[in-house]
Nucleic acid binder design. Structure first.
Length: 210
DNA sequence: ACATTAAGTGATT
DNA sequence: AATCACTTAATGT
């Protein structure tokens, strides 16, 4: 197996840092749909996403979910950044959208690398910046976009991170991710199909306009 | 053949 | 956009 760290982070980190990461990093794999981080978990190491895509969810007191954004390879989780700094619990859930390979770096290393490696410093800052932007985008989507636009964006995002225009997902699952009802999803999907933006099948949807 | 699950639809709020 | 009530279609046992 070719080193996935070099592959995804080779241009981001300097040689010495890559060596250090290889020394202390532990690879962890998650199968599709498995939970990587649960709400309330303490986070003791910081994950670098080597492969796959992760869905970041928020949950309300009734257990109702809402998708915030997706992480792709080369990304890291902003929640762990803040959690590793302080000693707080995770306020989000992370679920493997595809098969996922993570490289876990002990949180103790995080702070020392911050002062020792410029590339690490800019990576962390850049990641934070990216996640804040994605969060704002998520807020915009929820607050300002109509449901039909939201569904279409959801489908496009999902197709993007899975590198597959045919999504195996049910209307019910979509409704849970977007925090709405199944009936509404079915209706709006039908509308999108009539507009030739998608094609509907049982248990799968093909996105035509990407 | 029967039960279960996914999806489509009209009517109402 | 949510909910109810009902139908139809596909799939599992």
């Amino acid at each position: 197996m070719k080193n996935e760290l070099d592959l995804n982070f080779g241009y981001v980190f300097e040689e010495n840092l890559l060596d250090e990461i290889k020394k202390v990093g532990v690879q962890k794999n998650f199968s599709i749909n498995s939970t990587i981080i649960e709400i309330g978990d303490f986070i003791t190491s910081m994950p670098l996403l080597l492969n796959g895509a992760i869905k970041i969810l928020r949950e309300d007191e009734n257990g109702e979910e809402l998708v915030l954004y997706y992480l792709e390879k080369g990304d890291t989780c902003a929640m762990t950044l803040s959690c590793c700094m302080g000693q707080t619990k995770s306020k989000i859930r992370a679920v493997a959208e595809t098969e996922v390979a993570l490289l876990m770096v002990p949180k103790e290393k995080m702070t020392s690398w911050l002062s020792n490696y410029k590339s690490w410093q800019s990576f962390i800052l850049q990641s934070y910046h990216n996640r804040v932007n994605e969060l704002l985008e998520a807020v915009d989507t929820i607050a300002f976009l109509k449901m039909d636009k939201r569904i279409f964006k959801y489908l496009k995002d999902k197709a993007m991170v899975t590198h597959n225009d045919t999504l195996s997902v049910t209307h019910k699952e979509i409704s849970e991710d977007l925090h709405t009802s199944r009936v509404v999803v079915s209706r709006l999907l039908k509308k999108l199909e009539n507009e030739n933006k998608i094609q509907l099948f049982r248990n799968s949807i093909k996105v035509l306009e990407l």
